[in-house]
Design a protein around this nucleic acid. Structure first.
Length: 467
RNA sequence: GGCGACAUAGCCAAGUGGUAAGGCAGCGGUCUGCAAAACCGCUAUCCCCGGUUCGAAUCCGGGUGUCGCCUCCA
């Protein structure tokens, strides 16, 4: 089997993977801030993390996957000013922060399930771990890595010499061009909040050694990551946008706290673009998975779409491409249905070769595009049916495209067909029986004008809404 | 203004020195009363210019363009 190599954000290199404890892997994934619905760009990050987990499992590792749910502390600006996104969201929707979090957490996991993303073994909410965050903050104060000012406790990056190495920040340059500081008490513009004091009207606050307040955003991942995975975490994943601020700060906190490097390997997925540019609410291209399904697309079509590109490449979403992914996926499902439980002929040497190429692809930094090419070879080329059935079920463990769930399904809804259409279909059936082809064709056109498609298959005639 | 990434067929996207994966669309064919589905086959010399090399999409330099982040402005 090809050795597993993964790209490390810190060194910007492919590294042979080797866990701290042989045979087991701890993975921490930065989860969502649950103040709104996840959009498909967010979801790409979780498809990526899921593929990582599945590839690790495919390689025989026992994986422990942890993901946080941010329900407090994430400010509307990365520079610690602005408002807590949860508080702002709660006001926007006239709900309590708890209600807001419950609602969007539920929606988030519903999306993950539809995308065949395995639920992490541990899902932890920030608000359930305030004592742990306070403990980390207290320790950082004791160690001299943090200081207290008027509005809270801040991490002192001058005490962490390698600060900036993850994102390769040029602190000198940044300092030279420093903007006007909102908080003049901070010793360095890049110092960040561990704990913020809150005035009595603030919606979310907890008791702490420093008075009532709430935790800074970054500290939750340090506290929960170490709680559930120990102070040597094999892999930490997240979107590439988290590198410069969130993860840079997390490294500083965690490593300063533990006295050594905590995260062994940082992995980040690139952004999803829409129509060649950034997703933005103002551009009306801020799609959710629900919107995709409302347009008649199967959620797994989006997963297929993601797998077709490498996780470290920007991926351009267009409706045309999604439609292409859906067509391809439907064809795969059709083939799977034919092969289900096939005990037909096998050629083991061919199986071994295809399996080897698939493994080499996914083990080379999660090369899903190449893996998909191998999949299509299994499906298309002259691979004996027994071998194809076997390989498909093996590959499914990594790809998660429902290739093991025969019989085939059609995506198009089989929903209500109007009586008018049903009557036309019946009339057409009589015309066909009478071999009155001109009438049958005319009826087909009438049915199509009403938005439905008739298909004559070996199993009979079917009607479906046109897409 | 600074930093970084990218530029491969109509669309999406692999490939990082040895002569262009895969999917969708399109075209041709088989099948079908017709159509659909399915299946088979076909379709690119890699943004431009220069350089290195026996050989470059792949390396170097210069352009152009796109995207992202930061900053500034507002």
């Amino acid at each position: 089997m090809e050795p597993l190599r993964l790209f490390d954000t810190l060194s910007r290199q492919l590294k042979p993977f080797s866990p701290v404890v042989p045979g087991t892997v701890g993975v921490y994934t930065c989860g969502p801030t649950v103040y709104d619905y996840a959009h498909i760009g967010n979801l790409r990050a979780y498809v990526f993390a899921d593929i990582l987990r599945r590839v690790l499992e495919y390689n025989g590792y026992q994986v422990r996957h942890v993901m946080n749910i941010t329900d407090v502390g994430h400010m509307t600006s990365d520079s610690d000013d602005g408002e807590d996104k949860m508080v702002a969201g709660a006001r926007r929707e006239r709900k309590s922060p708890e209600e807001l979090a419950a609602m969007y957490t539920g929606a988030f996991f519903a999306d993950l399930a539809l995308l065949n993303i395995k639920t992490p073994h541990v899902v932890c909410r920030a608000t359930d771990h305030v004592p742990e965050m306070i403990a980390v903050t207290r320790r950082l104060l004791e160690l001299g890595h943090a200081y207290e000012i008027g509005d809270g406790i801040y991490f002192d990056i001058s005490t962490f010499p390698s600060y900036g190495s993850l994102a390769r920040l040029d602190l000198q340059g940044q300092q030279a061009g420093a903007r006007v500081e909102v908080n003049r008490e901070k010793r360095h513009p890049a110092d960040f909040a561990l704990w913020r004091r809150a005035d009595p009207s603030h919606l979310m606050q907890w008791d702490s050694p420093w008075g009532k307040g709430y935790p800074g955003w970054h500290v939750e991942c340090s506290a929960m990551g170490m709680k559930y995975l120990g102070d040597r975490i094999d892999i930490h994943t997240g979107g590439i946008d988290h590198v410069p601020v969130h993860h840079e700060n997390e490294v500083a906190q965690s490593d300063a706290f533990a006295g050594h490097r905590v995260v062994q390997l940082w992995m980040h997925n690139e952004f999803l673009l829409v129509d060649g540019g950034r997703m933005a609410k103002s551009l009306d291209n801020f799609y959710t998975l629900t919107q995709l399904t409302e347009r008649g697309y199967h959620p797994l079509s989006y997963r297929y779409f993601c797998l077709n590109a490498h996780y470290r490449s920007k991926l351009n979403f267009t409706w045309e491409t999604l439609a292409g992914a859906q067509t391809a996926l439907e064809r795969l499902w059709g083939r799977v249905a034919q092969l289900a439980g096939d005990n037909g002929p096998r050629v083991e040497s061919l199986e071994a070769e295809l399996r080897q190429r698939f493994q080499a692809a996914v083990n080379d930094d999660l090369g899903t595009p190449q893996a998909m090419a191998v999949l299509w070879e299994v499906v298309r080329k002259e691979v004996p049916s027994g071998s194809a059935a076997l390989l498909l079920s093996e590959f499914e463990a990594v790809l998660g495209l429902d290739l093991d769930r025969a019989p085939a399904r059609r995506v198009g809804s089989t929903g209500e067909v109007p009586l008018e259409v049903k009557e036309l279909v019946a009339e057409r059936a009589r015309a066909r029986k009478a071999r009155n082809w001109p009438l049958a064709d005319a009826l087909r056109r009438r049915i199509e004008e009403l938005g439905f498609v008739v298909s004559d298959t070996p199993d009979g005639t079917t009607v479906q809404p046109a897409r």
